[in-house]
Design a protein around this nucleic acid. Structure first.
Length: 555
RNA sequence: GCGCCUGUAGCUCAGUGGAUAGAGCGUCUGCCUCCGGAGCAGAAGGUCGGGGGUUCGAGUCCCUUCAGGCGCACCA
């Protein structure tokens, strides 16, 4: 019995109580699906609901009386073993072991699809994340968005959404000239210009550019600068793409800011917004009246000198997403960009969209390592590439994906990121590899999943140990956790779930033997438990995949 | 000054109005003669920053206050 089935049974109990007059409620006050949740305390049963507390006032009866009424009706439901009324009016529901345990077979049969839902099936989403400037390597801050963003893509898709993952390449503007100037300075051994990029990686880029284009030393300044800029840009962007791919992060679209300028999309965007009536010409510049939409000041689109601003490109980019058929646009931005929320939403509104529905801006807080902030100009850059080399992609991805985006994260460098047993990723992976070890040993001991006639050797009524009820209950939650993580845009919920599942598995493993002792015969309970072991392995693997973390068979 | 985010165990953090607030690390005590001890069982450790309010019920919602982070360009 799944929580959905239980929920429907509760609704039915309510409806029938209303129908025969024992409950005085308007028909529209009966919820279509009653919320059930797993109680914190095991002795409160498998599932609990507070529906009686919520409806008591509307029905004009005492919560406990309503709860009693529901309990007596629900108690007759097949698969329900007991219904108790507790506290102020909670319903605590215990399922038959057989009804609950059936889930193990369902999971095994559903396989990799278990956990997928159609919760967001009607959504087409463009998810933009990282979008770091191509003027330097990705550091740990970007790594957080990489781990989180990619997990979010996977989770949204698991919930049925149609998702395009996109990286916006800021390859236009004055910063690119400063970047080119910095590369050239390193090639020529001159002083890096004011406001330029000083990291050691610039020298490495310079060396690569020089190797490809030895003629650069003899070119006139302007030509040399352009060559250093373009060549350095190409090398740096290629490296970013390569590092991300090796990190298991894949983008469907790499969108160039420059292309917006070159195609005329920026000018067109200004005109389109003008037609919508939100553009003013003042003081020689062209403004978007973002204050119409709760921004605290208007924003310049075209400067007095005729140059478009970065904001104008943002507007053009937004319109591009809209034109390319994405009603939903999610931006995953760093906390240092939170001042952009209002103006981006203003673009959405000015474009005739609904900022409540068509644009969603998730602000991720910054990462610091042992108190040190990480910025491209500071000396203490921790690069994504180095992190992966140091502790492995799995540990990095998991460590960053298990926290919500809006918590400022302070990683205790060595301690937390090191490859050791302290890291929860190994706890979860270990549980998975343990299920595989059991599976290998089962084959050796000839514990089989099917009878000779091909029928399942699976008797769920035998899964009646308390740790089995806990484990099965946990497995039941998985699809809801995934759907919830997708709806709330919170991938960390999947990680936390996996940790709880791994804990339930380890406890079960300690209490219940899957395989018989060497001197004992193989019995029905062993075969049945093997199914449960399979189910756990499947869910651990499915969940780890949603986080882009491997599920090793041996460690 | 204005705005956003965050204050939960010694540390790093979970907890989308429910019952006795949780996990990992660290500290202490047990458990390998049998499926992987990267595990399990137990102990210690809390004014959920402070103060008001909303209600059957608040770590969670509202107001206020304190502390920390970040942001407030015709920069990108």
């Amino acid at each position: 019995m799944t929580p959905d089935e239980l929920s429907r049974a509760l609704s039915a109990a309510l409806t029938s109580a209303v129908a025969d007059g024992s409950l005085d409620l308007p028909a529209d006050a009966v919820p279509a699906s009653v919320h059930v949740e797993r109680p914190r305390q095991r002795e409160h049963g498998d599932w609990a609901t507070n529906v009686a507390l919520q409806l008591a006032k509307k029905a004009g009866v005492a919560p406990r009386a309503l709860a009693e009424e529901l309990a007596s009706r629900l108690g007759a439901t097949p698969g329900v073993k007991a219904v108790d009324v507790a506290g102020p009016g909670f319903l605590n529901i215990t399922l038959d072991a057989a009804a609950a345990g059936e889930l193990a077979r369902t999971i095994v049969e559903t396989g990799a699809v278990y956990g997928r839902t159609d919760a967001l099936a009607d959504q087409t989403i463009n998810l933009e994340y990282i979008s770091a400037n191509p003027t330097g390597p990705l550091h740990i801050g970007h790594t957080r968005w990489a781990a989180l963003g990619d997990a979010m893509v996977r989770i949204l898709r698991a919930a049925g959404a149609d998702v395009t993952a996109e990286y916006y390449v800021n390859d236009a503007g004055a910063q690119m000239d400063r970047f080119g100037g910095s590369v050239l300075a390193r090639i020529r051994g001159t002083e890096v210009p004011e406001g330029g990029y000083r990291g050691e990686y610039v020298a490495e880029l310079g060396a690569k550019v020089l190797a490809e284009h030895p003629e650069i030393v003899d070119l006139p300044d302007d030509d040399a600068l352009a060559l250093a800029r373009e060549s350095g840009y190409r090398v740096q962007l290629a490296e970013i793409r390569e590092v991300l791919e090796s990190f298991g992060v894949h983008f469907d679209v790499w969108f160039s800011e420059r292309s917006l300028h070159e195609s005329g999309a920026v000018e067109q965007a200004v005109e389109r917004l003008r037609e919508q009536g939100h553009v003013d010409d003042r003081e020689g510049a062209v403004w978007l009246r973002t204050t119409d939409f709760s921004d605290d000041k208007d924003r310049v689109l075209i400067r007095a000198n005729g140059e478009p601003t970065y904001f104008a490109a943002d507007a053009a980019y937004y319109l591009s997403k809209k034109d390319r058929g994405f009603p939903g646009k999610i931006y995953l931005l760093g906390a240092d960009h939170h001042g952009y929320i209002n103006r981006l939403k203003a673009i959405s509104a000015a474009a005739g969209d609904d900022p409540e529905r068509n644009i969603e801006i998730l602000i991720g807080q910054l990462v610091s390592v042992e108190g040190a902030k990480l910025s491209k100009r500071a000396g203490n850059i921790v690069e994504l590439r180095d992190l992966v080399e140091w502790i492995g992609a799995d540990a990095v991805r998991y460590s960053l994906a298990r926290y919500p985006a809006d918590t400022p994260l302070e990683l205790a460098g060595e301690e937390m990121l090191k490859q050791s047993n302290d890291n929860p990723v190994f706890y979860v992976q270990y549980a998975h590899s343990r299920t595989c070890a059991v599976d290998r040993n089962a084959a050796e001991r000839q514990v089989r999943r099917h009878h000779d006639d091909g029928a399942d050797a699976f008797d769920p009524a035998l899964l009646d140990h308390p740790t089995e009820a806990a484990l099965i209950g946990r497995l039941t939650e998985f699809p809801r956790i995934v759907a919830q993580a997708a709806e709330l845009r919170e991938p960390h919920r999947v990680a936390r779930y996996l940790e709880a599942l791994a804990a339930d598995y380890h406890k079960w493993y300690g209490e219940c033997r899957v395989l018989p002792y060497p001197d004992e015969p193989v019995e029905a309970v062993h075969r049945t438990r093997l199914w449960l072991n399979d189910a756990v392995r499947q869910v651990l693997a499915n969940g780890l995949d949603l986080l882009g973390v491997s599920a090793p068979e041996r460690m």
